Computed example of a mutant assay.
Amino acid sequence: MGLDAFVYCRCWQDRLATPCPVGPVGYDEDGWLALLQPWEGNRAAHKAFDVWLARSCPHERMEQVSEHVSNWAGVRLFQQALRTAGAERFPTLAAALPNVNGGWLTAERAAVALAELDRFRHTSRIADEVELIDEATGRVLMQYVEVYDGVFIFGPDVQAGVDPDGFFVLDRADPPVTLFRAVRFTQRPLPDHRVEFTTGGTRTVLAMRPVGEHGEPPPERLAVRTRSRSGDDFAYVVEPLRRLCEAAVSTGNPIIWC
């Protein structure tokens, strides 16, 4: 799950698409090209419209560009980087990215966002990022996402994550109690879905899954590090956003977030 987006082509607007067998057709209140009739009582017409939309021009579903922008954690990290770098330097980008699925960005604002993306991408130092890594391989296991309070693992009894003060495990009480915290530590899986964490001679056993298993043997030695990030480090989100903005500018159609 995450943020996806697309930009319509101009085939319908420029009357290059085959005629729709039902109508009226137009843009709905959410910016989608739609059959402007209620679903109830018009199901056959809506199905005919869907078939037409999929086949009426060379673009699949009349989408000039369709992109998976990022998962939500990646979007939040990008938003966090924009704030750290100075939201006043990237005001359109800071305001444009949605916090939930839905909405749109006009072609005029997309043109401004495109210039901001270029400025962001060429910034040599954006922010310091806090990461939990496997010390043996350097693989990143977690990243600090401010709006999530650093939490990345949710269990029935505990939640775990990483923040500028290190890796932490909290219970699910209200208010939560810190069960374990360390900047560098080892972990060892135990029977019955328990994990032993050790740091500085202190041993803590908790009922939870190992950190960083993801279908692989979980790492034994873990550490929290801080490293500087540049605009190039965010290419995973900048490039799909660039393609969307370019398509919006060239067609005059908005970016539809979905």
Rank of each mutant, 00 (worst) to 15 (best):
M142R: 08
R119F: 01
Y144P: 00
F180S: 10
G102D: 10
H68G: 13
T84M: 11
P218R: 03
V75C: 15
H59M: 03
Q37K: 15
L3N: 05
V7I: 14
D28W: 12
Y148N: 14
L222M: 15
L53T: 02
P218Q: 05
G103S: 10
E108S: 13
N99A: 09
A111L: 13
T202Q: 14
L105F: 05
L53W: 05
F120M: 06
P21S: 06
V100N: 08
V237C: 14
E129S: 12
A235I: 04
E116W: 01
R194E: 12
C57G: 08
W12A: 07
C258H: 13
G102A: 13
A54W: 01
A182Q: 06
G215V: 13
Q187A: 00
L132W: 15
P210S: 04
P254F: 01
E67K: 12
L114Y: 15
Y27C: 03
A5L: 10
A94K: 02
F180V: 08
V22F: 01
V69I: 15
L53M: 07
L82M: 12
L190Y: 03
P210N: 09
C11N: 10
L132C: 09
R15N: 10
L141P: 04
R181S: 14
V130Y: 05
G102T: 12
H122D: 14
L222W: 13
R43Q: 15
E29I: 08
L241F: 09
R125M: 12
F168C: 04
E116H: 00
T186N: 06
R83F: 04
R181V: 10
F234L: 01
E63T: 01
L179I: 05
Q143E: 15
G150F: 10
V158P: 00
A160E: 05
W52T: 00
A17K: 04
